[in-house]
Amino acid sequence: VVSQCEHCRQEKLLHEKLRFSGVEKSFCSEGCVLLYKQDF
Rank of each mutant, 00 (worst) to 15 (best):
R19S: 14
Q38I: 05
D39T: 09
C5Q: 00
L13V: 09
Q38D: 15
E30M: 08
C5F: 05
F40T: 15
E6I: 09
Q4M: 15
C32P: 01
Q4P: 15
L34E: 15
L34W: 11
E30D: 10
E6R: 01
D39L: 10
L14D: 02
F27C: 13
R19P: 09
L13T: 07
L18E: 11
E30I: 15
C28M: 03
C28A: 00
L13E: 10
E11V: 08
Q38W: 01
S3T: 13
L13N: 08
C5A: 02
D39S: 12
D39R: 14
S21L: 06
L14K: 02
E11R: 07
V23M: 15
Q10D: 06
S26V: 07
L14R: 02
E24D: 10
E30T: 09
L18F: 10
Q4E: 14
S29W: 02
K37Q: 08
C8R: 03
K12T: 12
S26P: 01
Q10P: 04
L18T: 05
K17N: 06
L18Y: 04
F20M: 11
E24G: 04
R19M: 13
H7K: 11
E6T: 12
F20W: 09
Q10R: 10
L14V: 09
L13K: 12
K12Y: 04
G22K: 01
C32G: 04
E6L: 08
E16V: 15
K17Q: 08
G31W: 07
H7S: 08
E24C: 08
L34A: 14
L18H: 14
Y36T: 09
E11S: 11
S26Q: 02
V2S: 07
Q38M: 05
S29R: 04
V1M: 15
L34H: 10
Q10A: 02
C28P: 02
G31R: 14
G22E: 10
R19A: 12
V23S: 06
R19T: 15
V1N: 13
H15L: 07
Y36S: 04
G31P: 01
Q4H: 15
V33I: 00
V23D: 07
R9K: 09
Q4I: 15
Q4G: 12
S3A: 09
Y36C: 06
E30Y: 08
C5L: 00
Q4V: 15
C5E: 00
C32S: 00
E16C: 09
S26Y: 14
E30V: 09
R19D: 13
F20Y: 04
F27W: 06
L35P: 06
L13M: 07
K37M: 00
E30A: 08
L34I: 05
E11T: 08
S29Q: 02
L14W: 00
C5G: 02
V23P: 07
H15V: 10
K17D: 11
K25L: 04
Y36K: 09
